[in-house]
C-alpha cells in the first residue's frame, strides 16, 4: 500500500512487465527460439559420446584405426555394455578444450574416421551386436586431405553399409546433425534425438550465405530449414525426442545420459524382437519413403519461350538491343558456378 502511494510499486511492476514482455518476445519469436536451440546444440560443454557412454555403460573398450590409413580421433568407436546388453558404439567426438579440439579436429571426421566406423559396424554385424551411434558433427572435414582420400566415397559407402547391415541400429543425435557427415552414421532403424539437437542438410550459415548472400541471416535460414529436433520429428526424419534436463544437456551430463539410456535400452529390446530380414527391409522402406513429391499428368510442361519470327524481327529492328549489352557474354548467365556449399 505504501509502495503504491509512493509510486514505487507501479514502476517496479511496469519494469517487470517490460522485462517479461522482452522475455516472452524472445520466447515467442520462432527465429529466436530456433537460433537458441542451434546455440545449445553447439554448446561447448554439451555431453559428447565419451561422456554419455561413460555414464550409461558399465564397461567400454575403445577400438582404433581404419586398417587403411590411420586413426581419426574425431570418430570414437568401441564395444560397450549398456544395461547388460553388449553393443557397438560409434560416434563423433568434439573436444572439450582447444588442445583436445585440435587433436579431434573439432569433431569433423576425415575419411579414415568413417572407414573406421564402417570397419567396426561390420564387426558388429559379424558378431551379432546391435549398433548405437551418437551423432554430433558440424560436417565432415572439408579440406584438401579429405578430398584426396575420398571423403565423399567414405560417406557414400558408410550410408550404403548401414542400409544393409543385418543387425539393429539405434541412432542418437546428441548435438549438431550436420549434413552428409552426420548421415554417414545416421542410417538406422530408429532415430532418437535430444531435445536441443539440430539436423540439417547444410549449416545455417552456409545456407544463408548462398540464399541470402550473407551469413548474418543464419537464424533466418535455421528457421526456414526447420532444423530443430521437434520439427524434424514432425517431418518424420526423427522418431523420438528425448527432453533435456534443466536449461539444457550441458547442465547435467549424468541425467542426460540416464534419460538417453532408458530410451536406448527400450529401443534395443524392441528391435531385438524383430527378425533380421524384417529389420533390414523396414529400414530400406523407411529411407526409400522420404521426400515429398506429387505425380502430375506426364505431358511435358510448355517448352521454354522462344521468340517467334515477329519477335525476332522486332528485336533485330531495335537498335537498342545490341547496344544494351556492354560486354561479350561469357557463357550463360544462368549457368553460373554452382552453389557448391550444398552438401
Amino acid at each position: 500500500m505504501v509502495d503504491r502511494i509512493l509510486g514505487r510499486g507501479r514502476d517496479a511492476t511496469a519494469e517487470a512487465a517490460e522485462a517479461a514482455d522482452a522475455v516472452t518476445a524472445a520466447l515467442t519469436d520462432p527465429k529466436q527460439i530456433t537460433w537458441a536451440r542451434v546455440q545449445l546444440a553447439r554448446n561447448l560443454r554439451r555431453p559428447r559420446i565419451l561422456d554419455l557412454v561413460g555414464a550409461m555403460a558399465e564397461e567400454f573398450v575403445e577400438l582404433h584405426g581404419d586398417r587403411l590409413f590411420g586413426d581419426d580421433e574425431a570418430v570414437v568407436t568401441g564395444l560397450a555394455r549398456i544395461g547388460d546388453r553388449r553393443v557397438v558404439v560409434v560416434g563423433q567426438q568434439k573436444g572439450a578444450d582447444t588442445e583436445e579440439n585440435i587433436r579431434r579436429n573439432f569433431g569433423m571426421p576425415h575419411p579414415e574416421g568413417y572407414r573406421k566406423a564402417m570397419r567396426i559396424m561390420e564387426l558388429a554385424e559379424r558378431f551379432g551386436l546391435p549398433i548405437v551411434t551418437f551423432v554430433d558433427v558440424p560436417g565432415a572435414h572439408p579440406g584438401p586431405e579429405s578430398e584426396e582420400r575420398g571423403i565423399a566415397e567414405a560417406i557414400a559407402r558408410s550410408i550404403g553399409l548401414m542400409s544393409r547391415l543385418r543387425t539393429p541400429i539405434v541412432v542418437v543425435i546428441t548435438g549438431e546433425g550436420g549434413s552428409g557427415g552426420a548421415l554417414a552414421i545416421a542410417v538406422g532403424d530408429v532415430v532418437v534425438a535430444l531435445e536441443n539437437a539440430v539436423y540439417s542438410v547444410i549449416s545455417p550459415e552456409g545456407c544463408a550465405s548462398i540464399l541470402w548472400r550473407t551469413s548474418d541471416e543464419a537464424p533466418t535460414a535455421a528457421l526456414a530449414m526447420r532444423m530443430t529436433a521437434p520439427e524434424q520429428q514432425a517431418l518424420g526424419v526423427i522418431d523420438i525426442v528425448v527432453p533435456e534436463p534443466g536449461a539444457g544437456a550441458h547442465t547435467d551430463h549424468a541425467e542426460t545420459a540416464r534419460r538417453l539410456k532408458a530410451v536406448i535400452v527400450e529401443q534395443l529390446d524392441a528391435l531385438a524382437r524383430v527378425s533380421l530380414d524384417d529389420l533390414v527391409e523396414a529400414r530400406y522402406r523407411r529411407f526409400r519413403g522420404f521426400g515429398a513429391f506429387r505425380e502430375v499428368d506426364a505431358t511435358p510442361p510448355p517448352p521454354p519461350e522462344r521468340p517467334g519470327l515477329a519477335d525476332r524481327l522486332r528485336n533485330l529492328l531495335d537498335p537498342g538491343r545490341w547496344s544494351g549489352i556492354s560486354s561479350i557474354p561469357a557463357g550463360r548467365a544462368d549457368r553460373e558456378p554452382p552453389a557448391r556449399d550444398e552438401v
Binding site: Y199, V201, M225, Y284, F290, D341, E342
Partner: peptide, 26 residues
Amino acid sequence: ASGGARMQEGTLSLMQLAKTVSALER
C-alpha cells in the same frame, strides 16, 4: 551434374542420399 542436395527441402533432401544409396546397394 549437380551442386548437391537441395536446401529448400531441408533434411528430406539429405535423406535422398540414403534413399538412392540403399537402392544401389541392392
